[in-house]
Amino acid sequence: MTSRRGFMAGLVAAGACPRLSWADAGSPAFLSAGRAPNGHYAVFGLGRDGQPIFEIPLPARGHAAAAHPHRPQAVAFARRPGRFVIVLDCVTGREVARLEAPEGRHFYGHGAFSKQGDTLFTTENDYEAGQGCLGVWDVTNGYARVGEFSSGGVGPHDVRLMPDGQTLVVANGGIETHPESGRAKLNLPTMLPNLTYLSLQGEVQEQVTLSADERLNSIRHLDVRSDGLVAFAMQWQGDLSAARPVLGVHQRGQGPELMSMTHAEALTMKGYGGSVVFWAKGQRLAVSSPRGNRVQLFDVAGRHVDGKLELEDVCGLGVLSDALIASAGTGEVFQVRQQATRLWQSGVAWDNHLVAVNRGA
């Protein structure tokens, strides 16, 4: 891979390289941040067998990434409350652009491209105002910042493009933070998480909040089914003895629904939903908890738990064909059908998310 990357870099430098695709980067199935065995942080491309295809260094710990829908480019996001977002060419390994949060802002670790890939949206904290916003970046103009708009709440973490290609759904976690206070949560007595649906121009189309007894369940991570059903993973901010379900779903025009689970099942998750993904053709859901060392599996139609996996420090979740893929801080990557099978063991401590790459574009 090193010689291939050097060869491609030479073509780019010579101006002789045609338009590149994800196939030129080795056809990765996923992107993931991680800590390499030497202790350095990087973003990795993972193949269908769970093995790293490429590794590109980062200046500090990453959280998630966004894969451009057409170009072999990865946008790597710093862990909250980080200020760096780096656009990387996954063929040559070079830095394409480094996005800087404006004064009074910091990034929240996630972003989403428009359907055509000409715009990038980033979740951000306007920390002096105590409000969330989405930064808007023009990809065709070297990822220049061209604006921002309100996220519709406090503490926006994840953002996804809806299947219509015209709507963004934002997980406003409800937690106010400030860089001077590190990761301290400043407004727990009044926090109010929500899901907000926005046009690509920032107009609020729909917004839903949780019930009063779920107010301390911070909405953090998202997945979207092809019919627009949104799954959201939450992180409980109250007493763990009163832990609530950490997974819910929402269909536009209706109220949010939490997945049914016993109190004991909620306690095993330690109040922490790490990643969430639809799988089995959208009929099942999975949510991970690195704190609870497990993945809970759900029947979507029945809205209830129908299985569990006990995996140490598991967090990243993805889908390949009919199989669930899970990555862990132990360096392991698992494939799940009827049970979990280890695909790959490495020295990389995988971080929170597996980000799917649209290699068909």
Rank of each mutant, 00 (worst) to 15 (best):
S241F: 10
Q131K: 14
R80C: 00
W344K: 13
R160A: 14
A326D: 01
V295Y: 08
G26F: 04
L210M: 07
T122V: 13
R48P: 05
L354W: 13
D351L: 02
C90E: 12
Q251W: 08
L88M: 10
V300F: 00
N187I: 06
R215A: 13
V319F: 11
D306E: 14
G360H: 15
P102I: 07
D158E: 15
A323V: 07
A301H: 06
G174I: 02
Q166H: 14
A171P: 04
H70K: 15
G182R: 01
Y127F: 14
Q338P: 02
G10N: 10
G104S: 11
L247K: 03
D351R: 06
S32F: 07
V146Y: 11
F30M: 05
C133D: 13
M234W: 00
G6F: 07
G39L: 06
N141R: 15
N125R: 14
Q251P: 05
A129P: 08
D158G: 08
V208C: 00
A171Q: 01
S151K: 06
P156N: 06
R4Y: 13
H63Y: 13
R225V: 00
A280C: 10
L188T: 01
M1A: 13
A171I: 00
L200Q: 05
V91G: 01
T341H: 15
G347D: 11
R337C: 09
Y108F: 14
D239S: 13
E257W: 08
G238S: 09
T177C: 11
V314D: 02
T119S: 03
L88P: 03
R83A: 12
G182P: 01
T140A: 15
L317Y: 05
P163H: 11
Q283M: 11
H70Y: 15
S218T: 08
Y272R: 11
E206S: 04
E214Y: 15
C133G: 12
L320K: 03
W350H: 03
P163N: 04
L88Y: 10
G255R: 11
Q339C: 09
L240D: 15
S260I: 08
G34C: 02
G155Q: 06
G104L: 07
M191K: 04
G255P: 02
G292L: 05
Q339M: 10
F121T: 08
G302E: 15
F7Y: 12
A74V: 12
K281P: 01
A13P: 08
A23Y: 11
L161V: 13
A129Q: 15
D306C: 09
E176P: 00
V96S: 01
W22E: 02
S21N: 05
Q205G: 12
K281E: 15
Q335S: 14
A33Y: 05
M8K: 08
L20P: 02
R220D: 00
G360E: 15
N358R: 13
G307S: 08
L324P: 09
A13N: 11
F54A: 08
L46Y: 14
A9D: 09
T262I: 11
G50N: 06
G104I: 07
G15C: 03
L20A: 08
T140C: 07
G147Q: 10
V249D: 00
G152H: 03
P37V: 02
G228C: 10
F113A: 04
V277C: 12
A25I: 09
Q338T: 14
E100N: 08
V136Y: 04
V224F: 09
N352Y: 11
